[in-house]
Design a protein around this nucleic acid. Structure first.
Length: 891
RNA sequence: GCCGGGAUGGCGGAAUUGGUAGACGCACGGGACUCAAAAUCCCGCGGUGGCGACACCAUGUGGGUUCGAUUCCCACUCCCGGCACCA
């Protein structure tokens, strides 16, 4: 055995052996129970970053652990290969996205292999291959047949200089990131998937999932089921006349009602407090009112400025303008003026709201700003009410006042009464409403799945027939930032209508890449299937543990759940949910540096290109570019990402220390769910530990391997007069060993907290190191400790442990070893150590027999010197005994 | 703005169900080995006071519940993630 730990020699050799043995190929037919562990597939941005290393090492450790526990484990890998960064890279260096993407995949696959992850590469999937995305197209058409796909207009960010649609990420402070131009909202036709049809099931089946509670809560809130009342505020006579003239364009989504303005509220009990109504700038009523009101038209135009991001809309100053149009209160027939508000979203509800400034904080602020009436109609336990300043309790449920027939009713009764009355007069009813909106999947981009629709002037939208799938994306194009190249390529879009055979045009939009990631984990199970999926999917699904970043807690996970249910309803798979258990990894963060370009766009700089100045506490104050010393902006810390150029490539660490050290470092540094600010300060500690482990095994093996305790057989040099009885020291070591096996199994299997598992093994080996006994029986215990320590660490550092196992048990292979068993005999203790407290403060310790009764413990504590000292002669008021833990004397 | 999460020594973190705050590391300081360096090994390492035994303080801030709170409750501050076209 080599006396020095040499990862550079060991790792390639061990990996080559795994490859020869096909060690990680998971058979579809195995008598063992399956364990399907999947990580969110990486976007092939160029190189792995530390977030990937963390993600896949967690996955890999769980794979090995469950394999040792007797499962047929499968860890697949694929590439989320469509998307925006490939187009940006193409624009920057003139290489087609296809080539750039394939090169990146090749490089990153090598990195994955160098990390030694137990990936079954025979199942590799890349979403940009026609063999994969044809099934996106095929399923899109099936969903369309079922009415789960439909077309309507949607609002996008429009860059008026580049004449192109921008992603939210490409809008910085309301301007296009390349042009610096002010972004506008623009309505375009798009394809939608009817996820709202599954809203109830998506909500209800969360309860049974083994997911973190916080993620389930986020999804519940996102879906946002609320029950309320939908009703119509009838138009006042003059308004009705204007709206009925039909000059205002009507949207096709059923948003307008010829007789009035449709609104939805969860606070129908406050209906008597309505003092005005507000509509979105895009609402037909606003359009009509603006027709001969230039000031209002200008305001409506102004509302169209800026992007479509919710965060931007929610934080901007609330502005409004009266339309001069009126609706009537459904009960009193009092006229209510309709305002246009920049905070009313056309995409949510009806695009119109009733305003009750007396009991809604936002309406209150708006009414104050524009001098509108504020009316109290709810009383909360007699708390004071004044229209001067908003108070929290104004929005709380209470009893109705100044509300006519509703007076004295509590919230529930008032809502019921209002709903009943509205229904009686035919103006409204109770309804369940969701915050969740249908999923718009059309993207005006090149590098994605083509939408398989032909637009025929005679037949309308026609689905591409199955036998003409896939609609292949040409892979030699280079986008230029001014709209999709597909829309400029007649070779792509010119086609014949599949129905009538006449000249027609393909849809040149591509699908949202969330489509790709909604079912790839199914395709892994049958990557060569001639159908979307086959029976093998039902063998492996659901995914037993899904691992990935917390940033996907809502969108990706919700879309994949929806997609799975849609596939189930078409009989393609049998599962209701794709991911039985979920481990959300915390983000790996790094500093972000940027500067504004001359054009008004933005460019980012990698932290290693930057010199920073800090204050006394190490806080970063400013930064300069190392290359030319120019000042740039420090933008704080954020997620490692390609676009912000703050990712850290693990390659340096692998080359310097080896894969095992890199793996150990990321696993022992923090719990997997923690957000971490990137640092490699402690990586030396991981390297040191592996060297130390190597040396311990080396020193032991050099004296000859023996059979491990408790059944060592005849020991070399053993004689009749050598005691087989363990010394106190060796008993303690074995106690620690078996406690550690127990703890590490719990940490891996239940807690999924690897940092504490490593710490526990470190503690064990620290104790082992202190034992200097070299007697034959001590050597058998040493063999037991080392073998088990190697097994416990093997899921995290598989290369070095493979090499060490070969020395400890030359006739066997580490990968075939089961998870070690706990020896109950080793855990038997005669005495236990109790903590002694006086008034809750630690005052001493005491050993008691393991079977001592509460009375005996109490009596012993009351005679303890320290306890008596701190009781200072006072009588005990109370004695708290927590069995196995502590005694607290209260005086 | 809304939803979800976080804050513990110089640093990463531990304390799993309300029961010894700081496990295990990193960095640092001292020492051993060495011609020297690296590597390795040993000792120390939250703060304040004390020669010391020891005492007091301390888990973002301010309150509360409890024999006992890092853990539970209330109010707040700052940071991170998401907000539907980054993936």
């Amino acid at each position: 055995m080599e006396s020095q730990y040499q990862p550079k020699a060991i790792e390639p050799q061990v990996q080559a052996q795994w490859a020869r043995d096909n060690a990680f190929r998971a058979p579809d037919d195995s008598p063992k129970p399956k364990y399907y562990c999947v990580s969110m597939l990486p976007y092939p941005s160029g190189k792995l970053h530390m977030g990937h290393v963390r993600n896949y090492t967690i996955n890999d450790s769980l794979y090995h652990f469950m394999r040792m526990k007797g499962y047929n484990a499968l860890m697949p890998m694929g590439w989320d290969a469509f998307g925006l960064p490939a187009e940006n890279a193409a624009m920057a260096n003139g290489v087609p996205p296809a080539k750039w993407t394939r090169d990146n995949i090749a490089y990153m696959k090598k990195q994955c292999q160098a990390m030694g992850w137990a990936i079954d590469w025979s199942r590799e999937v890349a979403t940009c291959s026609p063999g994969y995305y044809r099934w996106n197209q095929w399923f899109f058409l099936r969903m369309r047949e079922k009415g789960l796909v439909y077309r309507k207009t949607g609002v996008v960010n429009w860059d008026p200089v580049d004449m192109t649609v921008l992603a939210n990420e490409q809008v910085i402070d309301g301007r296009g990131w390349r042009t610096g131009a002010l972004v506008e909202k623009r309505e375009i036709p798009m394809w939608y998937m009817r996820i709202t049809q599954y809203a109830d099931e998506l909500l209800d089946s969360l309860d049974g999932l083994g997911w973190p509670e916080q993620v389930k809560q986020m999804q519940r809130n996102w879906i946002g089921r609320s029950s309320g009342v939908e009703f119509t505020l009838p138009y006042a006579a003059e308004t009705a006349q204007r709206m009925n003239e039909g000059r205002g364009p009507h949207l096709d989504g059923g948003n307008t009602n010829k007789q009035g303005l449709a609104v939805f509220t969860t606070r129908a009990d406050t209906i008597m407090g309505i003092t005005f109504a507000a509509v979105a700038a895009e609402h037909p009523l606003a359009t009509e009112a603006a027709r001969n009101n230039p000031q209002l038209a200008a305001f409506v135009e102004e509302c169209k400025k800026g992007g479509v991001q919710e965060a931007e809309l929610a934080t901007m100053e609330k502005k409004g303008m009266p339309t001069g149009l009126y609706v009537l209160h459904p009960f009193t027939q009092e006229p209510i003026e309709v305002w246009v508000g920049n905070y009313v979203l056309m995409s949510y509800g009806e695009g119109a709201v009733m305003a009750v400034p007396g009991h809604d904080e936002r309406d209150f602020a708006f009414a104050k700003k524009y001098g509108l009436a504020i009316k109290q109609v709810i009383d909360v336990e007699g708390k004071p009410y004044s229209t001067d300043e908003w108070q929290e309790w104004y929005a709380a449920p209470g009893r109705n006042v100044a509300s006519g027939k509703l007076d004295g009713l509590d919230q529930e009764a008032a809502i019921d009464a209002v709903a009943a009355e509205l229904e009686r007069i035919g103006l409204g009813r109770k309804r369940v409403q969701y915050r969740l909106r249908d999923w718009g999947i059309s993207r005006q981009r090149y590098w994605g799945t083509p939408i398989p629709i032909v637009l025929c002037p005679k037949c309308g939208d026609v689905g591409v027939p199955d036998d003409q799938l896939p609609v292949v994306l040409p892979d030699d194009m280079v986008p230029d930032g001014s709209g999709s190249p597909l829309a400029k390529s007649p070779e792509f879009f010119e086609t014949k209508c599949p129905k009538c055979g006449g000249d027609a045009k393909r849809d040149t939009d591509t699908m949202d890449t969330f489509v790709d990631s909604s079912w790839y984990f199914m395709r892994y199970t049958c990557p060569d299937a001639k159908t979307m999926v086959d029976e093998r999917a039902n063998k492996w699904l659901p995914v037993d543990i899904y691992i990935g970043g917390i940033e996907h807690a809502i969108l990706h996970l919700l879309y994949a759940r929806f997609w799975t249910k849609a596939m189930r309803d078409m009989g393609l798979v049998k599962v209701d949910e794709p991911f039985a258990n979920l481990l959300t990894q915390g983000m790996v963060l790094n500093h972000i540096f940027s500067r504004r370009t001359a054009k008004g766009g933005i460019e980012y700089f990698a932290p290693d290109e930057v010199q920073v100045s800090t204050d006394a506490e190490g806080k970063i104050l400013g930064a300069t570019l190392e290359a030319d010393g120019s000042a740039i902006d420090y933008d704080g810390i954020g997620t490692m990402s390609k676009s912000k150029r703050n990712g850290v490539d693990p390659q340096d660490m692998i080359e310097r220390y080896g894969a095992d050290t890199a793996r150990l470092y990321v696993m022992e540094a923090n719990p997997p769910t923690d957000t971490v600010l990137w640092s490699d300060k402690a990586v030396d500690g991981a390297a040191r530990f592996l060297r130390r482990l190597w040396k311990m095994v080396h020193d032991h093996v050099s004296a000859g391997v023996v059979k491990p305790y408790p059944d060592p057989g005849p020991l070399p040099g053993d004689r009749e007069d050598h005691p087989r009885e363990l010394s106190k020291e060796l008993k303690e070591l074995r106690f620690k060993l078996h406690k550690t096996i127990e703890k590490v199994a719990d940490d891996y299997g239940r807690r999924m907290q690897f940092n504490t598992a490593v710490a526990a093994v470190r503690e064990l080996l620290n104790l082992y190191d202190d034992v200097k006994d070299r007697s034959p029986v001590a050597r058998a215990v040493a063999q037991e400790v080392l073998e088990n320590a190697v097994l416990l660490l093997s899921p995290i550092v598989p290369h070095v442990t493979t090499a060490l196992w070969r020395e400890l048990r030359p006739e066997t292979r580490l990968l075939d070893q089961p998870w070690p068993a706990v020896d109950p005999d080793a855990l038997v203790q005669d005495t236990i150590l109790l903590v002694l407290q006086v008034n809750g403060k630690l005052r001493g310790h005491m050993h008691v027999p393991a079977d001592a009764t509460r009375e005996q413990i109490e009596a012993a504590a009351m005679h303890d010197e320290q306890v008596l000292k701190f009781m200072a002669g006072q009588k005990a008021k109370k004695v708290v005994v927590v069995p196995g833990r502590l005694v607290n004397v209260v005086v």
